[in-house]
């Protein structure tokens, strides 16, 4: 099974969540253990579980094969700003 590249995952999330700013990284440089930061105002008022479910929904059934491990941070624009300052 071919693994999805970070770029492909970014595009997939982005297309289902047009309001989101999506960045997928490959911090271990192994193409397998990926890490995503998703910033969207759609997360406002949603708890962590719902936010993750929104991203999972965007990814469809990719977890049953082409994505092995994806660590996720789901932030609202305000939370993202606070993290950076």
């Amino acid at each position: 099974m071919t693994m999805m590249t970070p770029k492909e995952i970014e595009t997939l999330i982005q297309s289902a969540m047009p309001n989101a700013d999506v960045q997928v990284l490959d911090p271990m440089n192994d193409g397998v253990h990926l890490s995503a930061v998703i910033v969207s105002r759609d997360f406002e008022g949603q708890n962590r579980i719902n936010r993750h479910r929104m991203v999972y929904k965007a990814l469809g059934d990719a977890f049953s094969g082409p994505i092995h491990a994806l660590q996720m941070s789901t932030l609202t624009p305000d939370e993202h700003k606070a993290k950076q300052s």
């Binding site: 962590r48 579980i49 660590q71």
Partner: peptide, 12 residues
């Protein structure tokens, strides 16, 4: 009650 997966547990 379902609490979450690894990312959520780590954040909590």
């Amino acid at each position: 009650e379902f609490i979450g997966g690894c990312d959520i547990i780590s954040e909590m």
